[in-house]
């Protein structure tokens, strides 16, 4: 029977917390870039210009069907040679996950926008609103509310996917765990602690979104689940 000993792991908890902070940086930036980009791609896909709409469809399908790890390798190992720039693990990670999640966010935006009753477009049009104004003032505020559960689900997927950046030597929580495990020869304790950390991080995040959903549901119409 194995003797559990967390002393070594917890003694170096700072090392893991640094990794957690680095994970959150990539996660946060990927959301900051990915959500607006996702909206843009969704609008492109719904546009009446066939070339633009097909291009956006292709981008969405491509990034949804290729594994994130392949994308990450491509951005880290291949892209720098193609455009001959230095690529840091951090930049490659943010780039990969912003674009990758934008493809998923685009589909969420499109679904949300399509879920709004056509009468809303008509009513806005009838009081003289242009399409962009209607989208901003009438459609998106309603659609975003309905999209929150899907957004949250996708963001949690993203958070879990960020563990991949450890494979390009970015010092995220997973990478720090690998380092610590080989340093302390205590993989069981290290990886268990890290699993628990991810578990609570994701739990907190999902609880926050549930809270947000309730808050928003109180004003006017609720979300559709």
């Amino acid at each position: 029977m194995h003797n559990w000993d967390f002393a070594a792991t917890l003694g170096d908890i700072d090392f893991l917390l640094l990794g957690l902070w680095n994970t959150l940086q990539v996660f946060g930036l990927a959301l900051v870039f990915g959500i607006p980009l996702g909206l843009a791609i969704a609008l492109g896909r719904m546009s009446r210009i066939p070339v633009l709409s097909q291009l956006c469809s292709f981008v969405i399908e491509f990034f949804r069907t290729t594994p994130p790890l392949v994308q990450l390798f491509w951005f880290f190992f291949a892209l720098p040679i193609l455009i001959s720039v230095q690529m840091t693990p951090f930049v490659a990670s943010v780039l990969t996950f912003s674009i990758q999640s934008s493809a998923f966010f685009a589909e969420i935006f499109r679904g949300g926008i399509n879920s709004i009753d056509k009468g809303q477009w008509e009513a806005a049009k009838a009081i003289g609103m242009t399409r962009p104004v209607c989208l901003r003032r009438i459609i998106l505020p309603q659609a975003v509310k309905r999209m929150i559960p899907a957004f949250a689900e996708r963001s949690i997927e993203l958070l879990k996917t960020t563990t991949l950046i450890s494979t390009v030597s970015y010092a995220d929580l997973m990478f720090q765990a690998n380092e610590l495990a080989s340093k302390t020869f205590r993989p069981l304790e290290v990886y268990t602690v890290v699993a628990v950390m991810y578990f609570f991080l994701i739990l907190v995040f999902s609880q926050l979104t549930i809270l947000l959903e309730h808050r928003l549901a109180r004003s006017g119409e609720g979300t559709l689940r």
Partner: peptide
Amino acid sequence: NTPVLVQII
């Protein structure tokens, strides 16, 4: 609520 990679590792 835990990443697959963490599970595999």
